[in-house]
Simulated assay, not measured.
Amino acid sequence: MTESMDQLQPMPTDWQRALAVVAHPDDLEYGCAAAVADWTDGGREVVYLLATRGEAGIDTLAPAECASVREAEQRASAAVVGVSTVEFLDHRDGVVEYGPDLRRDIAAAIRRHRPELVITLNHRDIWGQGPGGLWNTPDHRAVGRATLDAAGDAGNRWIFPELISEQGLEPWNGVRWVAVAGSSTPTHAADARPGLERSVKSLMEHRAYIEALTDEDCETYARGFLTRNAEQTGARFGGRPAVAFEVFPR
């Protein structure tokens, strides 16, 4: 592959509203918070929608307590990068099922918020490429795939017609792109430099989760993880630290 073909394209910028749909608290902070910070700085609106409250994510906390902790951490984390609206769907952490119920819930959110850009996390079976790839979790796969499908469902009045009759949510066919963060086959990227520092602080708000995950200092861990990823992506984006996305136009 030639260098020009291998380079990632800049993310679309001619949009005003985005909806980010992921499975768990912290998914967006690991995936694309630096881009979100830059977008909100530019006056764009970004809303977060989480399928679960991450209640199965900390071994030392019972699910009910964990859900409360992780919801609070997610709201604080979102605020750091300029996101004020964070919604939760209450699907069960760890056993999210792909299917019409999940698609309906996401389609309803798309109709409510009417985004031009929808963001989600890796829907593929693995993280990374080649034999060293890691198996993705069922929740990520289910939510990512359902989000890609729901972008179409939201615009079709005959799919989930109860969204109109019961919730008054008219079809929204204005989604122009679905951008998948964490994909093993990215096509586009956003400059991470303006928002990188805030993305580190945003991930650090998930302190209870990080402290259960690693013995490393929280800031050292967050800064190291996000900086490494941004620099690796930058090798395909003109040398600029960046956040990668696989973009599906609609």
Rank of each mutant, 00 (worst) to 15 (best):
I58F: 07
P161H: 06
D105E: 09
R207E: 14
H123V: 11
V47Y: 02
S202W: 04
E197T: 15
V96Q: 01
S84C: 07
N136D: 10
A142N: 08
P115Y: 04
F160A: 07
F248H: 15
I110C: 03
G57M: 01
R112T: 04
A235Q: 13
A181D: 03
A23N: 03
C32A: 00
E211A: 09
P161W: 05
L28I: 15
A208G: 10
T2C: 12
P194Y: 11
R157W: 03
N136H: 11
A33E: 02
A18H: 00
W39V: 02
G99S: 04
T2R: 14
A189E: 13
G195C: 08
E116F: 08
E211L: 06
G234I: 02
D90F: 06
Y30L: 12
F237L: 06
A23D: 07
G128V: 08
R223P: 04
E162T: 02
N173C: 13
Q232G: 13
S184F: 12
R176T: 11
G152H: 12
H24F: 06
L8P: 01
T2Q: 13
P241F: 08
G54E: 01
E55K: 06
G238A: 10
L121M: 15
R240K: 13
A189R: 13
D139S: 12
Y209H: 12
E197H: 14
R17E: 05
D41I: 07
T227W: 07
R141F: 07
T2G: 15
I126R: 15
